[in-house]
Amino acid sequence: MSWLDVFRGKSKPPPTSAGAAKERLQIVLAHERISRAGDDFLPRLQRELIQVVARYVSIDPKAVNVSLDRGGDMSTLAIEVELPPPSKDAPADAKPEARAS
């Protein structure tokens, strides 16, 4: 980018149609990939999620809930992870958020 472009306003490009293409593709494909995979990937997804989350916070494996809600033109994949209450020796205001230690 040349210094002239700054005056032409190129540093902040307006939204382009190619940008819209990317966004629309990402949404439609996320959707289609889920229906393609079928529900049978859910148990594995759940197992892997537990492993990943447990790397950052200790959780009860039973406190991870994964569900797939298949709708007509929209499906949702809901992932719910219940975190344990703050431990007694932690500062009172510590939030149970994911944190690499």
Binding site: T16, S17, A18, G19, A21, K22
Partner: peptide, 16 residues
């Protein structure tokens, strides 16, 4: 056309 924002970028196709 990619530079003009009229066509999907290579990197976007790769990412998707």
């Amino acid at each position: 056309r990619v530079e003009k924002g009229e066509m999907l970028k290579l990197d976007d196709i790769r990412e998707i």
